[in-house]
Design a protein around this nucleic acid. Sequence first.
DNA 1: AAGACGAAAGTGGTTGA
DNA 2: TCAACAACTTTCGTCTT
Length: 303
Amino acid sequence: MSTEVKCSDCGSRDIHHDDARGEVVCNTCGLVISESAIDPGAEWRVFADQDKGGGMERAGQKSTQLLHDKGLSTDIDWQNKDFSGKAITGNRSQLYRMRKWQRRARVANSGERNLAVALAEVVRMCSQMDLPKSITEEAGVLYRKAQQAKICRGRSIEAVVAAVVYITCRITDIPRTLDEVAQHARAGRKEIGRTSRFIVRKLKIRVHTPKAREYVARFCSKLQLDATVEAKASEMIREIEKRGEDNGKGPVSICAAAIYIASILLGQRRTQRECSDAAGITEVTIRNRYKEIVALLDINLEV
DNA sequence: AAGACGAAAGTGGTTGA
DNA sequence: TCAACAACTTTCGTCTT
């Protein structure tokens, strides 16, 4: 297994993976760098004060929706030793029987196996898309619900996962466009759209159509525009929405056009091409929208 | 040469009979 | 289920900076 990981304690690159334990260990100082090879990027924190007396203390990894058994299952080691390393003396066949049942109980049924694959895919997609951990968890929860509602039948895991991520982004008000999701998914745009509509209907999830303002910050940062442009664009969008002139128009296109105008007004001009690229739409659409906005808000673009 | 403009034809999703 | 429809895309020729 190749790795660029450096030991955070002594800086050594001499590191090995202990696959049996799922740990990454520094050979120089013995520091355990990552306790879970399943999700090496994961970070979780304990807030001692919040946990105090809350009965939330636990040993081992944090409970998470992102492992099919929520990370809480027990392992019976392959060696015939107990937790302290002492040899287990009792009945051997009994030990084998325990292992067998444990294996069965954990990933034996197909639903659990499906979940294990799906949740790994959720984690992969979300981290590729730079989504916050909370979204990843939410998406995992939604996948479980979808699975219980028998939505996965006849659909690829990849499509359902992508749909679930898409929906989760929408309901948490950090919308990603279908194209953006499709870019990081292992399913086609069309299928993701179809599947997510199906899930929303089946599970009766309430999703409002995204608002143009929800894209402003992200597109501005993509275009390296500062907060003044962002504020100006938001202001225009608010006015447009207030007058109900956003009806039927794609929120993404309104947002992109508003940013285009704001960038000119504040002397940080971006081309139509740049704006359309950042928003994933065409220049033509920017043109159409921005002319409407200029007319509507009586904006003078002359310098 | 790059950016902006606009016409025209095509695509995919929604809606309403 | 189908056709109509508006938004949006693609393409391309022309004008402007």
